[in-house]
Design a binder for these strands. Structure first.
Lengths: 202, 202
DNA sequence: GCAGACTATATAACTTATGATATAGTATTC
DNA sequence: GAATACTATATCATAAGTTATATAGTCTGC
């Protein structure tokens, strides 16, 4: 489970479960997310393991807050996670499975449409990341040289996203190019009829 | 759940659960995997939904095989999955969370070592994909132009992996370069002592 | 005063996935 | 003939994650 060490990471500053949800959505949403229904029980677990402690505080804006803080044992646990090296996350890409099985259809139009949708999504996300980068460049003079250690590391994660999304868009374009070439080679521009479309082989 | 349509995809050819596990490991392991303990119950579910049928067959190499085949309803279900467009898979990258929290450590050596390990892993996987590509190029004259539709789509998924891994390696290199620049700027080449290393801020 | 938005915690039901273990037939090697 | 490896199916316990729902306090606008 990576959620525990991630919560420990955020609990450098004391926060409630509700706070943590917002922090997730504001900072690491591009590579990690969690629902409140997962955060609350996990905080209870961390507390029972002595990695965090909590205090009940009155809130001016709503019901009482249960505010969690990392204990020294929690900091050690986080440290162990970081020192153990990159987590081997077997990434799953359902869209590649879909593309793979589109090979069973006779209709290359399905593949083209699929790749175009994929490209649009990657391009959208790329634009979001770029606008974040642009905004930070504007606000911080000397960005990224003058960043704090925390912001520098956050910047590296942003760079990773930019990099991968650019590669993904380029791959879509390359795939669409190969598709076009293939259609010319195999069909000489022949148009498919309605009957030929969307049929998988049995 | 993407496993059901993926199994349906493979069941273009009748296979047992055991076969399917091997097919996963041989074809889509780079973007999807499944354990036998997940495959067997899922096949039972698909059968109860009428999307596959099964027959018991005697095996020469071991116990009886339960061989599953896709029904027309199963083919339709697969078709729906493919026609619905790319599955929105919120990808999670634990290694980016780790990098993010390495910002809490004073020690940039930890970050360097982390990025170096990451680079090595990406480079290893890239080499595996490249050797697969090279092998197919050797075996198939006119590759990739002369591929069947299935192999062409498989080739696109391979290209995606090559593309993303190349981008990942490049990102690691870029990050290591920025790290070095940062160390020179902030510390003027100052060496950290043992006491300063690996300590997170509380 | 009440509707709607936001703050705040919590749990139940369900889905998805992994790891461990049990069972048992076949084939190969020592 | 015993050990090992491979073929083959199955179940259990557990973990990880999502969706829906319940409860309740505060604040703003109408």
């Amino acid at each position: 489970m990576s959620l525990k060490p991630i919560l420990l990471g955020f609990l450098e500053n004391p926060s409630s479960g509700y706070d943590l949800k917002k922090i997730f959505d504001e900072t690491v949403r591009f590579f990690w997310s969690a629902e409140l229904s997962q955060i609350y029980p996990t905080l209870h677990q961390l507390r029972s393991e002595g990695l965090v402690v909590s205090t009940r505080e009155r809130s001016e804006k709503g019901p009482d807050r249960e505010v969690y803080s990392r204990t020294p044992a929690g900091t050690e646990e986080l440290q162990r996670w970081l020192a153990a090296g990159p987590v081997n996350h077997t990434e799953r890409f359902a869209f590649l499975a879909q593309l793979f099985f589109l090979g069973q259809a006779e209709d290359l139009d399905l593949t083209r449409s699929f790749l175009q949708q994929l490209r649009a999504r990657f391009a959208d996300r790329l634009q979001v990341l770029r606008s974040i980068d642009d905004k930070e460049r504007e606000e911080q003079p000397g960005y990224p040289e003058s960043l704090t250690s925390r912001d520098f590391h956050a910047y590296l994660t942003l760079l990773c996203g930019l990099n991968r999304l650019e590669a993904s868009v380029a791959w879509c374009d390359e795939s669409l190019r190969l598709l076009e070439k293939r259609e010319l080679l195999h069909h000489g521009g022949k148009k498919t009829t309605r009957d030929e479309r969307g049929v998988l082989n049995d």
